[in-house]
Amino acid sequence: MHPAYSVILFTTASGAGYGLLAWLAVGAVSGVLPLERWLGLVGFGLALGLITAGLLSSTAHLGRPERAWRAFSQWRTSWLSREGVMAVATYIPAGFLALGWVVFHQVMAISAVLTVLCAIGTLYTTGMIYASLRTIRHWYQPLTAPIYIVLGLASGAVLFNALLHTFGFVSVVLTWIAIALLAGGALLKVSYWRAVDTSEKRYTVEMATGLGHLGKVRPLEPPHTQPNFVMREMGYTIARKHAEKLRALVLMLGFAAPAAATLLTLIPAPLAGLAGSLLAVPAMAAGLLVERWLFFAEAEHVSMLYYGVDAA
């Protein structure tokens, strides 16, 4: 599948935004954090900024972005529509939570709980857009949606950790949560790659053409000289041969490096906390961008059976 840069930016940026939002809500309602005005202002500003930037970026992928509002209507059947509804609905409890934190220095527990549920719900609907497509073996996997949730929460925790250290608050519990989520994310991702690599190619060109009873089917005359939309969108194969290297890069940048940097913050030395927690952010961001790009680039589509692929 062709990696749409706007969608990659959206799912990584908004994913981290929803993760951060969830951790802010947990921090607020659990009472472990002081509801300090600037921490709240910067925290919610960053979370909602990332979410909004991601959502706006996702409309760049549309042929008719001015009609994007129509996408809220078909939540009964469409995961994409559900994602749109959830993404916008999250602003409501998050807005109340931010208002309570920043202005009134006390939060309603219900707004925090709803913020967490909406944030996780949005991450889940994003994952389900991909996980529900039977045409793409690499996405139609039980781990697809959970990975979107865990990576969102992990990147959010890394951001939250950096934020807390910047404001001089230290939460050892959160540090360990971030490390645990990074480890869990890496584990899920490795299991996902194993599942994808060993998954059965259920459909063949003989099934696609119904000509198997006559023998092996091979393309002879292509219907067009240049790649059409279907081949450009669904037949993207660039970098598949580098998949192993890129997977290693994802594990290094996206999980190992931020986990190591986050571990650094536990060292009781001046600036270790700030440096470690801040360093983890660009590493995680770079790793997640590669991860998301690879998620698209590695995905094979059944329609390519008509264009010379034997099985998909």
Partner: peptide
């Protein structure tokens, strides 16, 4: 008149039957 050109329908089709119009955006 209401298609937003998100291309998700083309992803869902195993037959490669839907083609996006790059100029028309639908």
């Amino acid at each position: 008149d209401t298609c937003i050109g998100c291309k998700l329908c083309s992803w869902a089709c195993p037959y490669g039957a839907r083609e996006y119009d790059y100029d028309d955006g639908v």
